[in-house]
Design a protein around this nucleic acid. Structure first.
Lengths: 298, 298
DNA sequence: GTCTATAGTTCGATAGAC
DNA sequence: GTCTATCGAACTATAGAC
C-alpha cells in the first residue's frame, strides 16, 4: 500500500525527469503530476536528490533485467555470438533512446555532488563495464583479453556517438541495421588489434577508476559481486554436463556469499577461485575478480 | 582600455568556468576573482549567459587558430598525411584536456536554452564537423567520400572516450602514443569500410542537423562560410604553380564574399563554383558547399 | 549592497479513522 | 481524544540582476 504509492510517485517522477531533465523538473511539477502536495512527497522521499537517485537505480536495474532476459532468449534460439551481440546493441539503442536522461554523464550537474548518487552512479558504471567486457570476450574470444578494455572503450565510444545521432532523430537507418553496422566496425577494430598487437592503452588498473573517489572500496566490492552475478548467469550456457554445471553454479554462489561478507576469509576465496579456474570460460572473469578483490580491503 | 578590462574579466571567467563549471562558478566568484563589484561586470557583459557564451566562443576560436598554425608547420615539415593527423589528434587531446568544460555537451544545462549560446554552439559544432571532414578526406583520400560522415562520427566517438579517460587521469600512456593508437584504429575502420562497402549510416542530409533547430539557416550559412575559410587555408598547399594558387585563392575569396552577402547572386555562385571544380582537391568541399547553399535560402 | 525570483524544504492546521 | 495523512502556506538559501 505504502509501497505502491511510492512506486506511483517514482514512475511519475521518472517520466518527468526523462522529459524535462533533473534541474527543470521541479518538485512542484512532480507533485502536480501526482495530484498531491509537495509536502506529501517528502514523506516518501527524503529529498529531490534521493528521489532522482532511486529513479536512476530503478532505470538501470530494469536495463540489466531486460538484457538478461534477451540473453536467455538468444541462448534458447542458439544464435551465433555475433548475432547475440547485434541483438544486444539493438536493444541497448532502443532502451537508451527512451531513457537517455538516465544514461548521460552528469558532468557539471549538482546531483553529481551527492554521495548517495555518486555511489549509485559508480556502481552502475562498473556494472556496465563488467557487462560489456563479458560481452566482448564472449563474442571475440579470450585472445582479445589484453585489449579487452580498449575494445570496450572503443565500443562505448562508437555506440555513444551513433546514439547521439539517433536521439537527435538524425538517422533514418533502422536500429537493427545500425546495430549490425556497429558489430561490423567492432569486428574490424578487433581483427586489426590482434594483427598489429600494439601496446594497450587501458589496463585493468584504470578501467574501473573513479576520478572522484580513487579508492572507493565499496564500489569495488559491488563490482566484484556484480561480476560474480554475471558469471552465475553464464553458467547454464557452458558446454558441460548438467551435474558439472550445477556444481559450478554452487561454487560461484559460495564465492559470492563469501565475498559479500564483511570480512571474507582469504583462504576460502583462494580455494574457491582455484577450483573454478579449471573451467576455461571462467578464467578471465576470475582474474578480473582477483584483481578487484586484492586491491580492496574488503 | 575598456577592451582590455573586458578581456581581463573574460580570462578570469574562463578560468573559473574551467575549474568549477558553469553553474558552480557564480557571478560573485568571478567578481571577487577580478577584484571588482558584481555590478561592474554587468557593465561589461549583459548577463552570465552572455559572459559564458563569449568565453565559449573565444575558446573555440583559439582552438581553430592553433590548429591552423599546427597544420602550417606540418606542411612546412613535409609530413605524411598520417603523421599530420597524429599531430592534430595529439594537439586536440592536449587542448581538450585543458578546456574540457568548453568541449562537453551541455545537455540538461540551463545555458543550452539561451538562443545566443545555441547559435554559438551550433556554429562551433558545424565548424568542427567541417574541419574533421576535411582532415579525414585529406588523410584517407577522396574514395572515403560516401563514408566521410561515418568516419568522422567514429573518429569523434573514439576520440571522446579516450579523452574521458585522459581527463580522469586514468591513462598513463603519453598523449603522442595515444594519438598514434587512434590513427591506427581509424585506419583499420576505414580500410574495412572500403572493403565491405556497407550502406552508410550518416549522410550529408543529417550530418549538420540540429535537433533543436531543424532548419537553422543562420547556422548553415555560417557553416558554409567556415567551410570556405578552411578551403582558403588549404590553397597554399596545393601542388600547383604560384600564379595558379593565387588565382584560386582569389576566386575562393570572391565566392566567400558573395555568399556572405544578404542576397547572394545564384548565377555568380554557380560560375565561381564551376570554375573551382577544375581543381580536384576542392571538389568534395564544393559539393558540400552547394549542398549547404541550396538547402538554405541565404 | 539590495532586490527579487526560484525552488527545495519544513511547519502547522485540518480532517477523517479508530 | 489521539493518531496520522494531507496540503497550503511559509521559510530559507542561492544567485542573478541592477
Amino acid at each position: 500500500m505504502e509501497d505502491s504509492k511510492k512506486g506511483k510517485v517514482l514512475d511519475v517522477a521518472m517520466d518527468l525527469f526523462r522529459k524535462k531533465g533533473y534541474a527543470s523538473a521541479s518538485m512542484q511539477d512532480i507533485a502536480e503530476a501526482c495530484g498531491m502536495a509537495k509536502a506529501s512527497i517528502y514523506k516518501l522521499f527524503e529529498s529531490k536528490e534521493a528521489l532522482f537517485t532511486e529513479a536512476f537505480v530503478s532505470c538501470h536495474r530494469t536495463l540489466l533485467e531486460k538484457a538478461a532476459e534477451l540473453d536467455r532468449s538468444s541462448r534458447l534460439l542458439g544464435l551465433s555470438p555475433e548475432e547475440k551481440l547485434r541483438r544486444r546493441i539493438e536493444f541497448q539503442l532502443h532502451y537508451s533512446v527512451e531513457n537517455h536522461l538516465f544514461m548521460i554523464d552528469f558532468k557539471d550537474l549538482p546531483i553529481k555532488e551527492n554521495d548517495d548518487f555518486r555511489l549509485a552512479w559508480q556502481k552502475k558504471k562498473n556494472g556496465m563495464l563488467t557487462w560489456y567486457r563479458e560481452m566482448m570476450l564472449e563474442v571475440f574470444g579470450e585472445r582479445i583479453e589484453p585489449y579487452c578494455w580498449d575494445v570496450v572503450a572503443i565500443y562505448r565510444g562508437i555506440f555513444n556517438i551513433y546514439l547521439s545521432f539517433v536521439i537527435q532523430k538524425a538517422v533514418s537507418t533502422p536500429l537493427s541495421e545500425l546495430a549490425a553496422f556497429i558489430v561490423d566496425r567492432m569486428n574490424a577494430v578487433v581483427q586489426d588489434l590482434l594483427r598489429q598487437s600494439p601496446r594497450p592503452i587501458i589496463t585493468d588498473t584504470v578501467a574501473y577508476v573513479n576520478a572522484l573517489n580513487p579508492s572507493d572500496d565499496l564500489a569495488r566490492r559491488e563490482t566484484a559481486l556484480e561480476l560474480l552475478r554475471t558469471m552465475e548467469l553464464g553458467v547454464p550456457s557452458l558446454g558441460l554436463p548438467e551435474a558439472a554445471r550445477e556444481e559450478i553454479a554452487e561454487v560461484v554462489g559460495l564465492l559470492r556469499a563469501e565475498i559479500a561478507k564483511d570480512e571474507p576469509k582469504d583462504a576460502l576465496v583462494r580455494v574457491l577461485v582455484s577450483y573454478l579456474e579449471a573451467v576455461p570460460e571462467l578464467r578471465s572473469g576470475l582474474r578480473q575478480l582477483l584483481w578487484l578483490y586484492s586491491n580492496s580491503p574488503m
